[in-house]
Every structure is written in structure tokens, then in C-alpha cells.
Amino acid sequence: MEINLYTYQILSIVGSIFILLMLVELVRRRKLKENYSLLWFGISIVFLVFSVWPDLLLYLASLLGIEYAPSALFLILIVSLYLLSIHFSVVISELSEKIKNLSQKIGLLDLEIRKLRNKNKKTK
């Protein structure tokens, strides 16, 4: 039992560190913007903390009245992913608003360019 615990602990520490490094690498290569990486960093660090001190999870579970400690982990995970998805929906909404404004501007400017060209043709 103790050995099992040990193995999963090492695995989850390695996993968390791997994900953190991956995030750093993505930001370094500019594949991921700093502002969007913050949330992911936060979640990954939380996981790292729980991997290093699994007792923290037990404590948290007892605090919440959850008998089976891993359920607390699932709860944290699901809530984090949920919040993250909402965050993405907000970002997408902002982007679609920006795209709409750009498209409208393109339409307006396109008309003005056509008009100017026609005017030039006539004067020449």
C-alpha cells in the first residue's frame, strides 16, 4: 500500500512538472500568449502542490466532508475546467465582436475606395 502510494506520488509530481515545462515552452515559443497561460499555470501549480503533499488533499476532503479523498481531486479538476471553459467562451465572444467590427470597417472602407477610384477615373 505504501509503495503504491509512493509510485502514484512520483508519477503525479513528474506529470505536473512535465505539464508546467510544456506550458513554459509553449509561451517561450510564442505558441501560447502569456495572459492565457496564467490560468493553466495556476491549475498546474495546484496539482503540483497536491502531488507533493497528498495529505493536503486528505485534509481538504475531510474539510469538505468528502469521504473518498480522490473525489475531492475530481471536484477541483472539474470546477477548474468548467471555469476555464467559461473563460474561453468569454474570449471567443470578445474575438467575434472584434471580427464583426473589423468586417464592418472593411465593408465601409471598401466602398470608399471604390468611390475614390471612380472619381479618379472620371477626372482623368
Binding site: 468586417s103 472593411i106 465601409l108 471598401d110 466602398l111 468611390k115
Partner: peptide, 25 residues
């Protein structure tokens, strides 16, 4: 008429707003 061609379909709201922007400009 003046014609504004939008680069892609914005839906009626986006199209009408383009008209208001033109009116204001």
C-alpha cells in the same frame, strides 16, 4: 445605390449596424 459588401456573413444585426456606422460617418 451605394453597395457595401461585407467580407463574410455577419447576420442581420451586423449588417444593419454597418448601415448605422455609414450613416454616422
Amino acid at each position: 445605390a451605394d453597395i457595401i459588401t461585407l467580407p463574410h456573413n455577419l447576420g442581420i444585426g451586423g449588417a444593419v449596424q454597418t448601415g448605422f456606422k455609414y450613416a454616422r460617418r
